[in-house]
C-alpha cells in the first residue's frame, strides 16, 4: 500500500469510529445498515468483480445466516452469538452445495440458478410458517444479554465484522487465489488451459462470499432488526447490493464500500419522498454508470489518484 492508501484507510476508520459519538440512535442505525451492505457488497464483489461470477443469491445467503440463527434461538434456545457463528457456517455449506451444482454452468444459466435458489428459499420460509413463522416474522433476540438494545455497541460490532471482511478479502485477492479468480474472469477457457482448476476456485470464492454474507445477516438481524421476514430475500434487497457494487466500482476494494455508504444514505434521504423512490434512483445510477463509466465512482477516482502516484500502480502480489 502507498502512504496515501494507508492514510485514506486510517481516516476512513477514524470517521467510522466517530459515528457513535456524534450521531443519535437513529443515525447510528443508518450507519450500521451501511456497514451491513458494505459487507454484502464487498463479498458479492469477490464473485462478480474478481471471479466474473454473476450471482443473485447474496441477500439469500444473508437470510440463511439470519434464519439459521433465529431458528436455533427459537427452537433450541441457543445463545445468539452461537447462532450467528452457526449461521455463517450453514451459509458457507449451502453456498458450497449451490456452487457445486451450478458453477459448472456459465453465464446466464448460473445467474438463473441463483435467482431460482433465492426465490425457492423465500417461498419455503413463507410457506413453512409453523417452523419459520413465515410472514409473521421470526423474532431475533438481542445479541448480548441486555434489556435494551445498545445501537452504539451494535454499530461497533458491525464495524469489526466489516473490517475483518475487508482485510480477509484484501488478503484473498492479493494472493495466488486472486490471480486465479481474475484469470477466470478474463478468460475462463484460457485460465483452465493455464492449469487453473477453475471450478474449484470459483467454488472457493463462492464459499468465502457466502460465509461472509451469512455472518453479516445473522449479526445484523440480532443487533438491529429484531424481527426478520422472508421479504429479506426479495430481489429489491439484492438490487441494493448490486447497485452499490457497480456504482462504487466493480473489482476494486474501495468501490463497494463507497457505493454501499452512498446508496444507503441515498435510500434514507429518499425515504421521505416515497418508500420506493430509492429503487428508481438505484436503477438510474446503475444504467448511467454502466453506460458512461463502467468502472464506477472509485474507478473514476482511481485514474486521477494513480496518475499522481497516490495509488499503487503495481499489484502488491507481483512486487518483489
Amino acid at each position: 500500500m502507498t502512504r496515501f492508501e494507508k492514510l485514506a484507510a486510517v481516516v476512513a476508520l477514524a470517521l467510522a469510529l466517530v459515528v457513535p459519538l456524534i450521531f443519535d440512535s437513529y443515525l447510528i442505525r443508518v450507519a450500521a445498515t451501511a456497514l451491513y451492505f458494505v459487507i454484502l457488497a464487498t463479498s458479492w464483489n469477490l464473485l462478480l468483480g474478481f471471479a466474473g461470477v454473476l450471482s443473485f443469491a447474496q441477500a439469500a445467503f444473508a437470510a440463511v445466516g439470519a434464519y439459521t440463527s433465529g431458528l436455533m434461538c427459537l427452537h433450541l434456545g441457543t445463545p445468539p452469538i452461537v447462532g450467528v457463528i452457526c449461521g455463517g457456517i450453514v451459509a458457507a455449506a449451502v453456498g458450497w452445495v449451490l456452487a457445486r451444482m451450478c458453477l459448472r454452468l456459465r453465464g446466464p444459466y448460473l445467474a438463473l440458478m441463483t435467482i431460482g435458489f433465492s426465490e425457492i428459499l423465500r417461498l419455503v420460509l413463507q410457506i413453512e410458517h409453523e417452523f419459520t413463522r413465515g410472514s409473521l416474522g421470526l423474532e431475533m433476540p438481542y445479541l448480548f444479554p441486555m434489556d435494551e438494545p445498545n445501537h452504539a455497541l451494535g454499530y461497533l460490532v458491525m464495524l469489526a465484522l466489516a473490517l475483518a471482511c475487508l482485510v480477509a478479502i484484501y488478503k484473498f485477492v492479493n494472493s495466488e487465489a486472486g490471480l486465479y479468480l481474475k484469470a477466470i474472469r478474463e478468460d475462463e477457457d484460457i485460465a483452465q488451459a493455464m492449469g487453473i482448476d477453475t471450478v474449484k476456485w470459483k467454488i472457493n470464492a463462492f464459499v468465502v462470499s457466502s460465509l461472509l454474507a451469512g455472518l453479516a445477516g445473522g449479526l445484523f438481524a440480532h443487533l438491529f432488526v429484531q424481527v426478520i421476514a422472508p421479504q429479506m430475500l426479495l430481489l429489491s434487497e439484492m438490487a441494493l447490493i448490486l447497485a452499490a457494487t457497480i456504482v462504487g466500482g466493480l473489482g476494486t476494494l474501495a468501490g463497494p464500500v463507497i457505493g454501499a455508504v452512498l446508496l444507503v444514505v441515498g435510500q434514507e434521504v429518499l425515504r421521505e419522498i416515497s418508500p420506493h423512490a430509492h429503487l428508481l434512483l438505484f436503477a438510474i445510477l446503475v444504467i448511467v454508470v454502466m453506460k458512461f463509466f463502467r468502472r464506477g465512482f472509485f474507478g473514476l477516482l482511481q485514474d486521477r489518484l494513480r496518475s499522481r502516484g497516490l495509488l499503487a500502480t503495481v499489484p502488491p502480489f507481483t512486487k518483489l
Binding site: 490471480l179 486465479y180 484469470a183 478474463e186 493455464m194 492449469g195 499489484p315 502480489f317
Partner: peptide, 23 residues
C-alpha cells in the same frame, strides 16, 4: 494459441504468475 488470448486487464507479470502458480 493461434490468436493470443492473454488476460487483458491483468499486468504482464500477473499473466505470467497466474500460470506459474497454477502448475
Amino acid at each position: 494459441f493461434q490468436a493470443p488470448r492473454i488476460f487483458p486487464h491483468m499486468t504482464c507479470m500477473e499473466n505470467l504468475l497466474a500460470a506459474g502458480f497454477a502448475v
